[in-house]
Design a protein around this nucleic acid. Structure first.
Lengths: 143, 143
DNA sequence: TTCAAAGTGGTATTAAAGTACCGAAATATT
DNA sequence: AATATTTCGGTACTTTAATACCACTTTGAA
């Protein structure tokens, strides 16, 4: 499960904003808090806006706020905006002749894809946030 | 499940050779049969040799033959020679400060990794070959 | 009007993967 | 013994995708 940075940054931002739906944060706020590239994040935030997951507030004092359903949107919903998760064992010029070995490998990898997607689709933002809160508490207690 | 070509080629070659353990094929034989780059495959075959999965026969008329256990070696055994399957959400300079969001994402992706590995580890070469034979038969019957 | 923020488009840099090539060693055939 | 075939090891080139960066525009609040 190698997430590209786009998906990763998107998940970070979405979880950050979804953690408190009243909060409004600029890209630089989020980027600094998590130590990631503000420039890169900016582009990603636009995608999230178009997808309707966050709402952009322009102008001075603006930023982003979460505008989705925390208990309905899953990690898969976020990730799929930035990568396909499909197998694509691209061997250029066939698929045409149906090499049985390739077909078998295709079938296996796509089965794994489905499994992966199923897992990601059962984890809502609310679920993930609950875990992060538990972790956060554990940290402050031990400190 | 995006396999890089190295893993993919390795799987093709191993399944090809394991399909008939008496068979001895040169890299160009295998490459031509499946329409893949012979150069690239050559390197991969060396790795497979070192890993003990295939045996190299040098000289004229030489080639490779399978030298593993068809019912014991799994797809995971082959794939792991060429890629790691670990998550590595590499955010450069921490992990140190234990950002709860990142930690949660780490935990999720590594859970998926384990699932993926588990699946690949239950599929032996024998299992995969059985399926390819079934497919091959279906094709000849329908033709 | 000024300033801070998002929005847009384009370019540059980097990293990884894939591909190609070469010379050398081994060995089977003639 | 000579020759052809094939693996072996290493190296260099090409291609592609990901990532980072920059300049400019638009918007809205103070």
């Amino acid at each position: 499960m190698k997430l590209n940075k786009a998906s990763l940054f998107a998940l970070i931002a979405v979880l950050e904003l979804a953690g408190d739906t009243a909060k409004q944060l600029s890209t630089t706020d989020i980027a600094q808090k998590h130590g990631i590239s503000a420039h890169h994040l900016a582009k990603i935030m636009r995608n999230l806006t178009h997808a309707g997951l966050v709402q952009a507030v322009r102008g001075a004092g603006g930023g982003y706020r979460f505008s989705g359903n925390v208990r309905r949107t899953t990690l898969l919903d976020v990730i799929q905006l930035f990568e396909t998760l499909e197998s694509e064992l691209d061997i250029p010029h066939w698929g045409s002749d149906g090499d049985p070995i390739i077909v078998e490998l295709q079938s296996i990898t796509s089965e794994i894809d489905n499994l992966t997607k199923a897992v990601l689709d059962t984890i809502t933002l609310a679920t993930a946030l609950k875990n992060t809160r538990i972790r956060a508490e554990l940290m402050t207690n031990s400190a």
